[in-house]
Simulated assay, not measured.
Amino acid sequence: MAKKNQFKLKFNPKQLEDLRQDRRVRADVVKRAERIAEAAGGEEMGYKVTDLVLEDPRSAASVMATGEAHFHNRKHAALIRSLGAGRD
């Protein structure tokens, strides 16, 4: 019988929390949200990006469809189709 790799992985909860709240991680999340909004139609159409600073203990951003973008998104599912733009 083959011997399994034996290793132990330990998480440091404090470091994980610090990483989730790091300013560089927050900036990356907002940057990805901006790319998604731009791919969906941009701010000219009404897609707005909001940095959700009250989402504790993590970094979060929201892309909202306002005005004309609301109808555009309902008809074309633009936000769902634009999710790939948020990837690296």
Rank of each mutant, 00 (worst) to 15 (best):
L19G: 08
F7A: 12
A69H: 01
H70R: 10
S82T: 10
T66I: 00
E68N: 09
F7W: 12
R35Y: 07
H72D: 13
S59E: 08
R81N: 14
N12E: 09
K8W: 13
A37Q: 01
K10G: 13
L83G: 10
D28V: 10
R58Q: 12
L79D: 01
L16C: 15
A65I: 02
F11R: 00
E68T: 05
G84M: 06
A37N: 05
P57L: 05
G86S: 11
R20K: 06
K48M: 00
G67F: 04
D51C: 02
M1K: 01
M64P: 00
K10P: 08
R26T: 00
D22W: 06
L19H: 09
E43N: 01
L16H: 13
H70A: 12
N73T: 08
A40E: 10
R20H: 05
M64H: 12
A27H: 03
A61I: 04
V53C: 05
A27E: 06
D18T: 08
A65C: 10
L19E: 12
G67M: 00
Q21G: 15
F71H: 12
G86F: 11
Y47M: 01
H70V: 04
K4W: 04
D51M: 01
F11Q: 01
E38K: 14
A78K: 03
M45W: 02
L79H: 06
T50W: 07
V29L: 01
M1N: 04
A85Q: 08
E34N: 12
K10I: 12
A78T: 08
A65D: 09
L9C: 14
V63E: 00
V49I: 02
R81F: 07
L16V: 14
Q6K: 12
A39Y: 13
A37D: 08
R58D: 11
A27L: 02
A65P: 13
P13H: 05
Q21A: 15
D88L: 11
R58P: 06
A37Y: 03
V49M: 03
T66A: 00
R20Q: 09
G86A: 11
V49C: 07
P13R: 06
G42C: 07
A85L: 07
Y47F: 13
E55R: 10
S62R: 12
A61F: 03
R58E: 15
V25T: 10
T50N: 05
F11V: 01
R87M: 14
P57R: 09
L54Y: 15
R23F: 06
E44H: 06
L83I: 06
K8M: 10
H70C: 04
K14E: 14
